[in-house]
Measured scan of single mutants.
Amino acid sequence: GSLMYASIFGNVSAIIQRLYSGTARYHTQMLRVREFIRFHQIPNPLRQRLEEYFQHAWSYTNGIDMNAVLKGFPECLQADICLHLNRSLLQHCKPFRGATKGCLRALAMKFKTTHAPPGDTLVHAGDLLTALYFISRGSIEILRGDVVVAILGKNDIFGEPLNLYARPGKSNGDVRALTYCDLHKIHRDDLLEVLDMYPEFSDHFWSSLEITFNLRDTNMIPGSPGSTELEGGFSRQRKRKLSFRRRTDKDTEQPGEVSALGPGRAGAGPSSRGRPGGPWGESPSSGPSSPESSEDEGPGRSSSPLRLVPFSSPRPPGEPPGGEPLMEDCEKSSDTCNPLSGAFSGVSNIFSFWGDSRGRQYQELPRCPAPTPSLLNIPLSSPGRRPRGDVESRLDALQRQLNRLETRLSADMATVLQLLQRQMTLVPPAYSAVTTPGPGPTSTSPLLPVSPLPTLTLDSLSQVSQFMACEELPPGAPELPQEGPTRRLSLPGQLGALTSQPLHRHGSDPGS
């Protein structure tokens, strides 16, 4: 009898404990919600809404976190579960008819179910419309201010047509639940991603989709105040780019002037030289400038040598048109050559190039014969006009050509200096018209024969001689050997007369 009593008592207590286990969990969670309300000092109306929603959600799901349970299964099984949970929507909604099984599984994985109690606001006026909503159960109302403009029910759709707008718009009203509602919502990016994977279904979906109420604000059109608020930074940046392009296009129409201050000032006329910023005076940081632009901040801005204009002085008759350009485009679109090309026009420029290279940067340069637009006047290309890779490749080509020119210049200078040193070592320090008596009659020769300089066969020296023939050397430049009979510069000019005159010897006659 005691054994029977113990078994009955144990079973009854276990049954009672299981009955009250759900209630215990409910009270535990309710205590957490109330502690949250007390800690954050939530006001009474919002506090009442929180408690009511918790009670309804507990009775609806029995305190089970559906998302946590669903995430515990593998992905393939999750797709089947989501397809079952959203079967009513996918079967009865017209846009989803005719979709393949794979497309429906992908869509079912992207849908999220939302449960809303009465009085809950789903979308506020001015919120971004980031999702498309399908009503599965219940009814909602749409308000503009305090005026109800629409009441939607089961199988209705609200949001915005995503295929017509590249960016999400703003809501033009509040969406509030009238009863307990079940909503299926899919985010904008998720829907577009699935439709991109199934393009054959995309056309059918957009053609058959009928949005019951379009929440997009109709005033959000390009150029409206609301649109400016939504895309303020983007609009200002776009206007700045367009104004920069218009100014650079105007600059290219004036090829007669070359400016070292950047493309923003290349198009300024002579009357605007004294102004601080020219056409860019209202925004000094709008356009890029070269490193020399920092010198323009000092006094005497109108007389600054940074602004270059072609000189009108005539060229000498024998002067060549100019050196070879550094870039391939210089032959086609440049009416002034790079300062480095002028360094190779003569030997005198070679000796004085490194010492006063900055001073020569603004000297007169030889002109190319074609009066085409200036290379320095070409505006900086924006990322939309020329690819970045093209600019980098041009810079690399320019750097390689500069290296080759520097190597060639160093070799030419070394060769010229070597020839000058050899000339100085071969010439005796001094010569006299009267020579010392020699031991015999073989001493009648006034000077030792001097062998002429070897013929220069280097390509670089031939180019130097060509430049010497075309360029007029300055007075202080050293002379180079030329073709024809060679003669030492330090010898007297009348050596031929010395050989014809008898030598005057000093000596005593033994017979006297």
Results as ranks from 00 to 15, higher is better:
G126M: 01
D127G: 03
A131R: 06
I135V: 09
S139D: 04
I140C: 15
L143T: 13
L143Q: 04
D146K: 07
V148S: 05
A150H: 01
L152P: 01
N155Y: 12
D156P: 01
D156L: 02
D156F: 01
I157H: 01
F158Y: 01
G159A: 03
E160H: 03
P161T: 04
P161D: 06
S171C: 06
S171K: 01
R176H: 03
Y180L: 05
D182T: 13
R188N: 07
D189L: 04
D190Q: 03
V194T: 08
S202C: 13
W206F: 04
L209N: 03
E210G: 05
I211L: 11
T212V: 04
T218L: 10
T218M: 12
M220F: 08
I221K: 07
P225W: 12
E229S: 10
E231M: 10
G233Q: 09
R236A: 11
Q237I: 11
K241G: 11
K241T: 09
S243Q: 10
F244I: 15
D251Q: 07
T252W: 11
E253I: 12
Q254R: 12
Q254H: 06
Q254F: 12
P255G: 07
G256D: 07
E257H: 04
S259Q: 11
A260H: 10
L261V: 09
P263Q: 11
G264D: 09
A268L: 08
G269W: 05
S272L: 12
R273S: 07
R273T: 04
P279H: 15
S283A: 09
S285V: 11
S293F: 15
D296I: 11
E297G: 11
E297C: 03
S303T: 07
S313E: 12
S313D: 08
P316R: 06
P320H: 15
G323S: 06
G323R: 09
E324S: 14
P325I: 14
P325Q: 08
L326F: 09
M327V: 13
C337T: 07
S341D: 13
A343R: 08
F344W: 05
V347A: 10
I350L: 12
F351A: 12
F353T: 07
F353I: 12
S357D: 08
S357E: 14
G359M: 10
Y362M: 08
E364L: 09
R367K: 12
C368M: 06
C368K: 03
S374V: 08
N377L: 03
I378F: 10
P379S: 08
S382W: 05
P383I: 15
R388E: 11
V391M: 15
V391P: 06
S393E: 13
Q399T: 04
Q399N: 05
E406I: 06
D412P: 03
M413Q: 05
A414W: 05
T415M: 05
M424W: 03
T425D: 05
L426F: 14
V427Q: 14
A430P: 08
A430L: 12
Y431I: 12
Y431H: 08
Y431D: 08
S432V: 11
S432Y: 04
A433Q: 15
V434C: 10
P437F: 08
P437L: 08
G438R: 09
T442E: 11
T442N: 13
S443I: 11
T444D: 12
L448D: 12
L453D: 13
D459G: 08
S460H: 04
S460P: 07
S462H: 14
Q463C: 12
Q463E: 15
Q463F: 09
V464N: 15
Q466Y: 06
Q466G: 12
Q466R: 12
F467M: 07
C470P: 08
E471A: 08
E472S: 11
E472D: 13
L473G: 08
P474S: 12
P475E: 05
G476I: 13
E479Y: 15
P481V: 09
Q482L: 08
P485T: 04
P485M: 15
T499A: 11
Q501R: 12
Q501L: 11
H504M: 06
G511C: 06
G511S: 10
